[in-house]
Design a protein around this nucleic acid. Structure first.
Lengths: 117, 117
DNA sequence: GGCATATTCAACCATCCGGTTGACGATCCG
DNA sequence: CGGATCGTCAACCGGATGGTTGAATATGCC
């Protein structure tokens, strides 16, 4: 009965993985480039990336021999919502939340994506 | 080198602990009462509470032989800030989500009328 | 073909985690 | 005092986690 929140929060609980996510904010990256700033074996980083992908926080797409890692911010949103109003995470509300996100997306698509300040 | 975020996210990664936090939203509770709905030994729950306290998510105060557990929502703030600093996209807009829910409710009310008497 | 690059796999290791049970220290109450 | 209640401690267990190394698999390049 491992909830999606379990894997997301567990993935976020590691500083290396949080650092990776922060790096991916900048841009998509290849596995080797993700690993470069860390004093850790490439295989170790590869495992961390697999965990992040398992939590849905990133996706990986192989082009040629390079596997590109891409941030998936939506996975964070569910966790963020839980934190802000934890308690109201019954399935009903999750469904509603998904509909909400879709509605929001459509709105974003038709309106200006940023309300900059 | 364990960051505060490490312990907070790790604490949130367990469904039992999230359920406990949700229960504490209602009111402060004694350890025994926290444990009551779970099919788990009291010692097990006591450990979970210690982890939550270690992460600063709750505080515990002993009055008489009863130890009261109190939610500390501020501890969530750092994690929440981290997650939101994350998205270039707007932070999750809970207000908008609530308006969405209300709008949906009204829609349900007008679309699926009771054939009442 | 042959070599370098990119990434994962497999095995292994130490440590942590979630859980149990049983004993123990406090505290209330009759 | 003596017994019941509240909660933790200590030891233990199986399984997950975070890391390593070395071999293996793809892919690109000359």
């Amino acid at each position: 009965m491992t909830d999606a929140l379990d894997t997301v929060f567990a993935a976020l609980a590691d500083p290396t993985r949080r650092a990776i996510l922060t790096m991916l904010l900048e841009d998509d990256m290849a596995v080797t480039d993700v690993a470069e700033p860390f004093e850790m074996s490439l295989a170790g980083i590869s495992k961390h990336l697999a965990i992040l992908a398992g939590a849905g926080l990133i996706t990986q797409e192989k082009r040629g021999r390079v596997k590109w890692c891409k941030l998936e911010p939506d996975a964070l949103r569910a966790a963020s919502v839980w934190m802000q109003g934890f308690g109201q995470f019954e399935p009903v509300n999750l469904d509603a939340f998904e509909r909400f996100l879709e509605a929001e997306l459509q709105q974003d698509a038709t309106e200006a994506p940023f309300q900059g300040d």
